[in-house]
Amino acid sequence: MIKFYNRKNKSYEIEQVAGEKVLNWTYSSPLGMSLLEAVIKKKMCSSLYGWYLDRRISKNKINPFIEKFNIDMSITEKNSQDYLSFNDFFYRKLKPTAREVDSDRNSLVSLGDGKLFAYENIDLERLVQVKGLTYSLKELIKNPQVAEKYQKGTCLILRLCPTDYHRYHFIDSGTCEDTKKINGAYYSVNPVALRKVKKLFCENKREWSTFHSDHFGDVLYVEVGATCVGSIIQTYIPHKPLKRGDEKGYFKFGGSTVILFFQPNKVKIDEDIVEQTKLGYESYVLLGERIGTKI
């Protein structure tokens, strides 16, 4: 059971988890963990399932998924019958009016829809994965020089569960450098898995890039793949001027995570998000929603 904080209602809710029984069995039983290490975390497993979800035959999974998880199709660009495959539906685009991006240049906005943790004054060698488990930014991006810029800065972890909108966006105007890719495993990024696999973010396939923001300094974007995520697709053009809210990329099927790092004294995260993080709860946020301010 995953409890999260709904900022709009100021209340706690229980997340609906796609494949919850299988997920719990995999990460909680000796046989499940053995299968995970031998097969599930391997690239071939996720690639094969991704291949299937790219095929027209997978369309029959769309409507049951919409009904089970109450997906709001009134805000999507296409109707359910118009998608060519399940993956085509999974990384669906939203109507331009579906999400309002806060235009105040001093407002820090969410890069997408999902569950958010926020950590301030971070120690690069002891970044929090979950309570009791940490990892290193230097190990995460394998570039100590870039990592050092974010010592004592701010870290945001946005988890996109399979029922969420799976495109991620730029939080400000600016330009973004080329993406660096790091091969890795395909563990789930669900909290169940985060409590079981040490340095999970450093184990999984991931990509990172430096975004030169006009108002928040150099922001480090790290996209982390997960079980059954066949691909991380970057749709932006490196070094080209970007606007706040422009799309950066999307994930194919599976739960995924985007981690942002800010340099010290650049942003102040809204107090409710920081407080919920300290209590161990993620806060549910939407693309374009204000989550902090410029310092």
Rank of each mutant, 00 (worst) to 15 (best):
I2T: 14
F4A: 15
Y5M: 08
N9E: 14
N9H: 09
Y12G: 05
E13V: 10
G19A: 06
L23I: 11
N24T: 11
S28G: 15
P30K: 13
P30W: 12
M33R: 13
L36I: 13
A38Q: 13
A38K: 13
I40Q: 03
K42P: 11
K43I: 14
M44F: 12
Y49F: 15
R55H: 13
K59A: 15
N60R: 10
N60T: 14
P64V: 01
I66T: 06
F69D: 01
N70F: 03
N70G: 09
I71H: 00
D72N: 15
E77Y: 04
S80Q: 14
S80L: 06
Q81A: 12
D82F: 07
Y83H: 08
L84F: 09
L84A: 15
S85G: 09
S85R: 07
F86R: 02
D88R: 06
D88T: 13
Y91Q: 03
Y91D: 03
L94A: 12
K95T: 14
E100P: 00
V101A: 01
S103W: 00
S107R: 05
G112D: 01
G114Y: 00
A118K: 03
A118H: 02
Y119F: 12
E120R: 04
E120Y: 01
E120N: 10
D123M: 05
Q129K: 07
Q129Y: 09
K131R: 15
G132D: 11
G132V: 00
T134L: 06
T134V: 14
Y135D: 10
Y135K: 09
K138T: 12
K142M: 11
K142W: 03
Q145S: 13
V146W: 08
A147G: 08
Y150N: 07
C155H: 06
C155S: 11
I157V: 13
L160M: 11
L160H: 04
L160D: 06
H169E: 05
H169Q: 02
F170K: 05
F170S: 05
K180W: 01
K180M: 08
K180Q: 07
I182P: 00
G184P: 02
Y187V: 00
Y187E: 01
Y187R: 04
S188G: 06
P191L: 02
A193C: 05
L194W: 01
L194V: 00
C202R: 01
N204I: 07
E207V: 09
W208R: 06
T210L: 12
F211M: 08
F211S: 07
H212M: 14
F216V: 04
F216C: 10
F216E: 07
V219L: 07
L220I: 12
V224W: 08
V224G: 08
C228M: 15
S231D: 15
I232R: 07
P238T: 04
H239T: 06
P241K: 11
P241Q: 13
K243P: 00
K243M: 12
E247T: 13
E247Q: 09
F251N: 03
I259Q: 02
F262W: 02
F262I: 03
N265Q: 10
N265W: 02
D270Q: 06
D270W: 01
D272A: 05
V274E: 07
T277P: 05
G280I: 15
S283E: 01
G288W: 00
E289T: 01
R290D: 07
G292H: 02
T293I: 13
T293N: 14
I295D: 05
